[in-house]
Amino acid sequence: MDTTAPVTLNPSVIGQAEKHHTAVLTRALAGTTLDEKQWIVLNQTVAAGAPVDPAAHITRVAAMTQWNPGDAGNALTALLESGLLRETSADLVEPTEDGTALAGKVRAETGAIVAAAYGAVSPEDLATAARVLTTITARMAEELART
């Protein structure tokens, strides 16, 4: 492959970046009980900063990831059963201390790798990439909503 040829953003470039992000996450999850779906549900619960309504959380995560809501619900159930999430007295869901600690460990491990990779790109280029990818994602979401 000619590495001097200009590269333009296309599905292959996006897919390769996504696959590398997934590989970094998979490495960080090795030795835990979490799969990618459980990780995302746990991480989003921790990121909420407050207890979440389980049904609304499942709907939000499913929409964000394009998963079947049942898959997000199964991940949430597995996290409750493993003790990484718990139900509150108000029928909400929140991370346990173990869940928060595990999320912090995975974030630290992936964060170091991601920060090094993203640090090789100027802030201006990262901002442009974010705008472009956000626009592409929004257009694809519109198309998916039509079918």
Rank of each mutant, 00 (worst) to 15 (best):
L80F: 03
T65S: 14
L92F: 03
R86P: 07
H57I: 01
S89K: 12
L79K: 08
L92R: 02
T59N: 15
A78F: 00
R86H: 09
E94P: 03
R86W: 06
R60W: 06
V93L: 04
N74E: 12
L80Q: 08
Q66C: 07
D91T: 09
H57Y: 00
R60G: 04
T59D: 15
L92C: 01
N74L: 10
T77P: 02
A63N: 15
L84W: 11
D98M: 02
S82T: 07
A62M: 13
W67A: 02
D71T: 03
T77F: 04
V61E: 08
A90I: 03
L80D: 07
H57M: 06
T77Q: 13
V61I: 13
A62P: 05
N68E: 13
T77H: 05
D71R: 02
T65K: 14
T65M: 15
S89L: 09
A72V: 04
R86I: 12
L92V: 01
H57V: 01
A90P: 01
L76I: 01
G70W: 01
T77Y: 02
I58L: 01
S82L: 05
Q66V: 10
P95I: 11
T59H: 14
E81M: 01
H57S: 02
L85M: 06
L80I: 13
S82W: 03
T96A: 10
T77M: 11
G73N: 08
D71V: 00
S89D: 15
P69V: 05
G73L: 12
W67R: 01
T96M: 10
R60S: 07
S89F: 09
T65I: 10
A75L: 11
E94Y: 09
L84H: 12
L76A: 10
P69N: 13
G83R: 11
V61P: 03
N68C: 01
T77W: 01
S82I: 02
V93S: 02
A72Q: 05
E81L: 06
P95S: 10
E94A: 14
L76C: 04
T96Q: 12
L79F: 04
R86D: 13
G83K: 14
V61T: 05
D98Q: 11
A75I: 13
A78K: 04
R60N: 07
A62D: 11
T96F: 13
W67M: 08
I58T: 14
A75S: 13
A62F: 07
L85D: 03
V93G: 03
V93Y: 05
E97W: 09
N74D: 13
W67H: 05
D98Y: 00
S89C: 06
T88C: 07
E87S: 14
S89Q: 12
E87W: 00
N74C: 03
S89A: 15
N74R: 08
A78Q: 07
G83H: 08
N68H: 10
M64Q: 05
A75E: 11
N68V: 04
A72M: 07
D98N: 14
T65Q: 15
D98P: 00
T88K: 04
